[in-house]
Design a protein around this nucleic acid. Structure first.
Lengths: 215, 215
DNA sequence: ACAAAAGTGTTGGGTTTACACCCATGG
DNA sequence: CCATGGGTGTAAACCCAACACTTTTGT
């Protein structure tokens, strides 16, 4: 579960109360029940354990299955990337906390590796899909969006070009409304929203495109 | 297991001898043992059952876990994309066969969907990685490579541009040698090979690149 | 009026596709 | 010497990052 916050990506971790790896931080999750598929399961776990109901996006990352990844009985885990919009701040239990992705605490098992995989997947998809919708509030200013993209990518993105890229892709929709200007004055920002509320590949072929249509 | 052959992508399928879904065609695979991870397992299954030892590339696709996807006991499957070079033609048992991806026979379970997912993944990666190495022979002419790319992508690719794109990415290496010309004459083709024998992302950011280095 | 923040125009560079053209060989 | 297939040159289009400039507000 990742979230952009204060200009940095954060991940929701849960401090283990029991051995193995007592006191270390682990990704939330749990056992798969017989009557659910893995995505339903992860959504249920998050809803039950950490009261997160509003995941804006969930996707499979990878299966981790090395026999030795967890001590004890053989365990196969399906890792997920989950995203939460920047403006929702779900109630979370005392033993969980959001941690910035650089500067993770001691993590349990291979969870640091999984977290990195999640971050990489997110970064890649920011470039060729509209996945920003899952990190941003329903409506936002370009500045807010710029901050979110910068946090997720780990480097500064220019507001100008971000807006242009998303507009060209048809992912951005002006609402027509504006927000009041800030305390120091300045032009009041316009509010935007994403066109699509779900994941869509906006830039399918970087290269080796299909031949142009003959007209 | 996909392979480019005769200008079309083919998938290796196995005709089920038993119920459920008797006589339908299914993807090769089998049970995970306690002492192996999923990738080791799929390689073992392919080696044992269909005598395929030379997979040039293997990667995880996705986990399929709907409770009803297979009748009977609850089954969770990890699907893989495997690639075989066009010039190897492994010995395969009588009850398996290569099928062209368009025009699949009756497939078992959700295996048609999985096959489509594999094809889509391959197509996407052809555009931003050097994954062609896994479909091509160790050495090849640009024409042969063009045919392979066209087969995998499902549309004609121009040899000229293919060569240029791969060269710019630094993925292509001229061997200096040439093949004799064909029966009808023509200029003898030059032989090339891929620089890297493993998967590498050659075109990481289509858009929203990191800011340029200040010098 | 001035500073601050948002948004627009423009330029230059880099890639890519498409296509015309040149090269090497067998018949 | 001509047909055939391989390979190179080049032009037009496109897209993007960078940056200067304009617009709109609060003080």
């Amino acid at each position: 579960m990742l979230r952009a916050q204060d200009g940095v990506l954060h991940v929701l971790l849960w401090q283990r109360a029991r051995e193995p790896h007592r006191n270390r931080w682990s990704l939330p999750g749990g056992r798969l029940r017989d009557d659910e598929d893995v995505e339903t399961s992860i959504r249920r776990q998050l809803a039950e354990k950490v009261d997160v109901h509003k995941l804006s996006h969930v996707e499979q990352l990878s299966v981790f299955s090395e026999p030795a990844r967890v001590p004890g009985r053989r365990t196969v885990a399906t890792a997920f990337l989950g995203l939460v919009p920047a403006d929702v701040d779900p109630e979370i239990p005392d033993d969980t906390a959001w941690h910035p992705l650089d500067g993770l605490p001691d993590t349990a098992f291979d969870h640091e590796r999984i977290t990195r995989a999640a971050r990489d997947r997110l970064r890649a998809k920011l470039s060729y899909t509209n996945i920003g919708f899952a990190l941003a509030p329903a409506e936002f200013t370009i500045s807010e969006l710029r901050r979110i993209y910068s946090a997720a990518l780990g480097y500064e993105v220019a507001a100008t070009n971000l807006q242009r890229v998303l507009t060209r892709r048809g992912a951005l929709l002006p609402t027509g409304r504006t927000l009041p200007a800030g305390p120091a004055g300045g032009r009041p920002p316009a509010l935007f929203r994403f066109t699509q509320p779900d994941l869509e590949i906006t830039d399918p072929f970087a290269v080796l495109r299909p031949p142009a249509e003959r007209t």
